[in-house]
Design a binder for these strands. Sequence first.
DNA 1: CGACCATTTGATATGGATCAAGCGATGTGG
DNA 2: CCACATCGCTTGATCCATATCAAATGGTCG
Lengths: 230, 230
Amino acid sequence: MLMQSAIQARSVNAHHNPKPMAGPGPGPVDKAGAIEMMGAPMAFKRNVEIYGENEPAEYLYKVVSGAVRTYKVLADGRRQIGAFYIPGDVFGLESTDQHAFSAEAITDAKVLVVKRSALVALAGRNNEVARQLWTITAGELRRAQDHIVALIKTAEERVIDFLLDMAARIARGNRFDLPMSRQDIADYLGLTIETVSRTLTHLEATAAIELPSARCVVLRNRGSLGRLHG
Amino acid sequence: MLMQSAIQARSVNAHHNPKPMAGPGPGPVDKAGAIEMMGAPMAFKRNVEIYGENEPAEYLYKVVSGAVRTYKVLADGRRQIGAFYIPGDVFGLESTDQHAFSAEAITDAKVLVVKRSALVALAGRNNEVARQLWTITAGELRRAQDHIVALIKTAEERVIDFLLDMAARIARGNRFDLPMSRQDIADYLGLTIETVSRTLTHLEATAAIELPSARCVVLRNRGSLGRLHG
DNA sequence: CGACCATTTGATATGGATCAAGCGATGTGG
DNA sequence: CCACATCGCTTGATCCATATCAAATGGTCG
């Protein structure tokens, strides 16, 4: 199982120096949390690094548009994607002061950036904020636990889990567009790109899904997917 | 990959009704956290359930002695162990009100039990406690993330990761006794019991470890283990 | 139109699962 | 205290899901 995932010179380190881009300053304050209030908008181009593994976790991020992946690369080049983040998701939060994973923009993306220390300080005074930080971390924990369970399943089950998860998060009706490549999906699911591709093809042959184009998925009947399941 | 892990009538539900056993009441207060102060000691026999998946997460637990596993059983009987907990570890903390995993005593175990609502209430007033709850959750997250990364590795790498992790947690010198069975290890690592056994045998043949008895492990040289590694 | 990159498809190899004994330790009843 | 049963672990033989290697196809952008 070398399964070397092709991580050629794909990642471009932007040597990120978080300053608000010429932007609206403290963003629109709907019923929003502290991140919206304090966050400075920043833009990242596709495949640009937002932060690196083992860097001090100085900032916390919330996706406004686009998509982000967190990942870790092992010594021999295997890559494990920890999670995908889409608009509304918060990432970069770990209570330790070092990031456990790296983060990259999957597509051109806009994110709100908040200074971690400021938020933690605020949490010390405002226990609603403290509760929010905890809730976000617990949500990540839940996601990681689900990921662990998915990783012991068969290839087909992993792909189905992934599709259902993405559908729940981004589908309008039963149709959605994947922001990430087959390689990303493979590295998220612990499979090869070929196995992911074959599995999708097979699901399409089974009439469980439709693939109008490589990045577009239509769930044909969730029942059968559910039964093959989670 | 059915890999049905043998989960016969091993689990005995104690139908747990958390009341302190006749015990020392609020435990010794060293520099300890709220759990020590508020926790009521309880004893669980080997293989007895402490809580079940999807039960309301009413309590929080800290291991005093013995060992505990959390796990999830899929529809078809495959079991995934989420984590092992040893004295000093806190488990059962998830911010959602339902447990994501079940928990069982691996060996006869004593744990401190704290009412979740009481601790959360306290956290609202005392932000040191709030910070502790967050830190524990973040620690679990980190552990889950490491677990994810381990699950994409080869069988040998997974076993080595596991041994090094256990060694770091419980070894005196280079020797330690495993509280859990081969089946537990297999279900934690997403392997079969046979593969775990063979891998251990192979590591012993390589002089990387020694197995004076099935449950006792001696790390022979961490260097070579590290290189094969994590 | 041509080059490049992502994806699919095909053929083959293999790590780990499955099936099947065998073995050693632990505990129980006689 | 011993014989036997049980349980957890190891070892062996075979099989299969998924990796690997290789090539063809398709979609996108200059």
